[in-house]
Design a protein around this nucleic acid. Structure first.
Lengths: 337, 337
DNA sequence: ATCCAGCATGCGCCCAGGTTATGGCAGCGA
DNA sequence: TCGCTGCCATAACCTGGGCGCATGCTGGAT
């Protein structure tokens, strides 16, 4: 098996016309070059250079070898450059997966910025994996998954009862990296004409008698126990609706109220007002799940940085500011599309 | 700088789908493969394999790297094969240089055999170099030169006076190899009707009164002192003629006699008879001059072997047998064309 | 719950390859 | 003629990287 280094020496000797000059160009000593060439000639069974006064000149086979070696080295450099393109974010692909409320604003903003900064990387937003985000990332079907603390339980049903304890063990996350992006408060979605539509924050105790709308997805009404404690009693759940638009329609129609993650504020329709809650409800933590650093693709690293930045802006920019369209017509400048 | 070995490991891992299997295929251990891949990923800055249960699969960049690595390795193998062709005498060139009487029979026979056995090698017979055979070989203008002991002197004129002492020092032959091929006696060229045309050997004393024909080339009348001793007095030199055909014509016309190297017997014209001489004259040693073994091209090595074989056949086949066409019509089976 | 296949890591050894020192050879100039 | 100067080859020594061995760990299957 030939090695690339000896080919490099070969080419350099041919280019410089002497072992000494090649050695200097290669930052090594002349005997090392001499031995490299000798070893190459021994392995190939052909003399490659004619030792002539004041240097060397390639023999017939030597000249052929030099040209072929140039080709090999060029292609090897091309390989390195190609990989460098991946590392330098000039090429590659990135498959994202997110949950509904992240898709409302954070993900579109991230995709827009990322696509502008790294046009060589093919971005794709894959539908949530049937096995859930963890197996999807572990199985390589998704490079980066956005998820919430409520999705972190081995059994999603547990999210309803024990929102603080992470049921996942470290073993479940081996080789993966769970990066906290953002802690977001839940907002209350009220009909535009609701008496508390202007409150900031909304005292949850004042919503004790409201009819609540629950959804099937864990990313919906959130932790029931804390909500019950804040309300002063278990919420009256009048509707189950998994569809985000349907829930909004119910709220707008005055059929009930519900909790909405702040991230979804950009997708609020007319007639629905989002109001911050008092800090009685636990925050929902937003995570980015990806392969751990040794296995992480550069594009993923870049996207993580971007997400961190965007999440920081979201958290700092208008964390407790009232969101919604109708009651405050001036606040219609969303980040996302 | 990447090395070819790690690329080989990369490809093998991709082909086998696991580090362990690749290690077995490469006759190494699994940890070695693991480290090779890890090193490659570190140097390229990109993860190349996704560690999955029961093996590994290439990542996006990894797949690209594998294909490029295949290309690099294939071209490296092509380089080796190409050089192997030179070594295996399937390709290359060989530039010969010889002196007139060698061109008569030995060189044509060698060229015919060599061209038949190694059709891939381009043979060429270059004219004698103006600087002489030694600088020609040393300067790479000639790969293999045939020459005689008379040509070995630093100054050709010395050949006439001191035929035994080789004036060349070892320093003059540094890096070169002087391979003795054949010791040949000189024959006397006589007119077909000469009284001694049937003698074997010809007693030189009987030619004391003949007119001798001298040539300008050292490869002609040979060592004058020994000839004078054998004749019992200095030869009567009546003609100077450098042209071989001209000298033969003079002999055939009965104008004189001359000495002829045995090698030239195939080129003897009608009317001229070649007869062996008694061992009073020194033999002329035939040499093959080429680069010394480390620098010697495989084609040269092969040609040297062939020349040795042919020279042996010439020496053993008909060393002292009478040569010539006219007096013995049965002896017309020459080796050369 | 246990087993097993497979990858990662720590440790010790060894040799490929480099450096230093030295010698030889060719050409040049005094 | 002799020394001088580049240049390559060789020997001896040394260092670093790569390999093998042993071990630990993870994930899926039985």
């Amino acid at each position: 098996m030939l090695d690339a280094w000896s080919l490099r020496v070969l080419v350099e000797v041919a280019d410089h016309g002497s072992f000494s000059a090649a050695a200097q160009a290669l930052s090594m000593t002349q005997p090392a070059v001499s031995r490299q060439v000798a070893g190459l000639e021994r392995r190939l069974g052909v003399p490659l250079f004619r030792r002539v006064h004041r240097g060397t000149r390639p023999t017939g086979p030597g000249g052929v070898a030099v040209e072929l070696a140039r080709d090999v080295l060029a292609r090897m450099a091309a390989l390195e450059a190609r990989m460098g393109a991946f590392g330098g974010l000039a090429a590659g692909e990135l498959r994202l997966s997110a949950f509904p409320s992240a898709n409302a604003a954070l993900v579109p903003a991230a995709i827009r910025r990322f696509g502008r900064d790294h046009p060589g990387i093919a971005l794709s937003l894959v539908q949530s994996d049937p096995d859930g985000p963890l197996p999807a990332v572990r199985g390589g079907r998704v490079d980066l998954a956005l998820l919430t603390s409520w999705q972190l339980y081995a059994h999603p049903a547990a999210a309803r009862t024990d929102p603080d304890a992470v049921a996942l063990t470290d073993r479940d996350l081996a080789g993966l990296d769970l990066l906290p992006l953002l802690d977001e408060r839940l907002s209350v979605a009220l009909p535009a004409g609701h008496p508390l539509a202007g409150a900031d924050p909304v005292p949850l105790a004042g919503l004790r008698d409201e009819m609540w709308i629950e959804g099937g997805h864990p990313d919906c009404l959130g932790p029931i126990p804390q909500l019950a404690a804040a309300l002063g009693g278990p919420p009256r759940i009048g509707f189950f609706c998994e569809d985000w638009n349907g829930k909004q329609a119910l709220v707008a129609a005055g059929a009930g109220v519900t909790l909405v993650p702040t991230l979804a504020r950009a997708a609020v329709r007319d007639g629905v007002v989002l109001r911050p809650t008092a800090p009685e409800l636990p925050t929902r933590r937003l995570y980015a799940l990806s392969a751990a650093p040794p296995q992480r693709l550069p594009a993923v690293t870049a996207m993580l940085g971007l997400l961190t930045e965007l999440a920081g802006a979201l958290a700092a920019g208008a964390p407790e500011a009232p969101v919604g369209r109708k009651p405050l017509p001036s606040g219609t400048s969303e980040t996302g599309s």
